[in-house]
């Protein structure tokens, strides 16, 4: 059996593949966070909560309403975007002119409130969302048996990331968006409704988080805390990649997922901190992140 630094190659490949799955989630979530920060200048702490809400909405659609996974994948991001737009219009709009810290505080408060409400209705034991029938089963890769659902997660998450990147970097709408954040007054003078653009961007970002929530639902026990535990890591990813950088978020998300995978093989105790060690190093060397602009 081939060994790489004392670890059988099979084990390492397996962990790297799992790291890629986690990395896809980091990419999808940090992308939304990054887009919202880039265009709204809000540090959205509630992003993880919207991921959790996405997963619970999928659950509600399934058990009382009987709408399956594919419906959830299509409907939940739209519903969540609606919630996001409502929050943006009623709450966030009022704090745009203020320091970043207010945005952080307000969204942190929203996190506590939404989590509390979900906990009251759904409890803490965890709910179960089944893997959709079409994606059950395993692929035998030789070095490991990989559940097909995990392959789908990588494909779907990366597909959506690339779509978002293409819209923002390669379309006219995206160009207007970027211009709007650069100089809102000027863009408004050209007859573009900037506040509406901003609302739509926030909705899109929340929709991405909710989509990630639906993707994650069949992989874990759904508890109100799931958003909480992932958001800290995702913040780390965004800081490393550079706040506001889209491609940076995607690449950093994937890379850090892989790094975690490696850590889990060689020193599992460090797997939860390795991202933050990298974060500190990056902040020392490039305070604006690997892909951030000055």
């Amino acid at each position: 059996m081939t060994e790489i630094f004392g670890v059988p190659a099979q084990v390492l490949y397996g962990q790297l593949l799992l790291g890629l799955v986690n990395g896809s989630f980091y990419a999808l979530l940090s992308l939304g966070l990054s887009v919202i920060f880039g265009l709204l200048n809000i540090v959205n702490f509630a992003h993880g909560t919207m991921y959790m809400v996405g997963a619970f909405l999928a659950y509600v659609l399934l058990s009382p309403l009987g709408l399956n996974y594919w419906w959830a994948l299509a409907l939940v991001p739209v519903l969540a975007a609606g919630i996001g737009i409502f929050i943006e219009r009623t709450v966030l709009k009022r704090i745009y002119g203020l320091d970043n810290i207010y945005g952080l505080l307000v969204t942190f408060a929203l996190t506590m409130i939404i989590e509390g409400v979900v906990r009251v209705y759904f409890g803490v034991s965890g709910l179960r969302y089944p893997v959709p029938q079409a994606l059950t089963g395993m692929l035998d890769l030789g070095f490991m048996r990989l559940p097909i659902y995990r392959v789908w997660v990588i494909v779907a998450a990366l597909g959506l990331c690339l779509l978002t990147w293409a819209i923002i970097e390669r379309t006219r709408l995206g160009a207007t968006l970027r211009a709007g954040t650069e100089n809102p007054k000027l863009v408004q003078a050209f007859g573009v409704n900037v506040p509406m653009l901003v609302t739509l961007v926030f909705g899109w970002g929340v929709g991405l988080a909710a989509f990630a929530g639906v993707l994650a639902a069949p992989l874990m026990q759904l508890t109100p805390q799931i958003g909480h535990s992932i958001i800290i890591t995702v913040f780390g990813v965004v800081v490393i990649g550079g706040m506001g950088s889209i491609l940076g978020s995607i690449l950093t998300g994937l890379a850090l997922g892989l790094l975690e995978g490696v850590a889990k093989v060689y020193y599992p105790e460090a797997s939860s901190t390795v991202i933050f060690v990298v974060m500190i190093l990056v902040l020392l060397v490039r305070p604006h992140g690997l892909f951030g602009k000055q």
């Binding site: 084990v11 962990q15 799992l18 490991m144 994650a216 992989l219 874990m220 992932i230 889990k264």
Partner: peptide
Amino acid sequence: VKHPAFMATDFSSYAL
């Protein structure tokens, strides 16, 4: 194998 308490939601590596 040790995992961080209440922070990890992904147990696939440990399971593997």
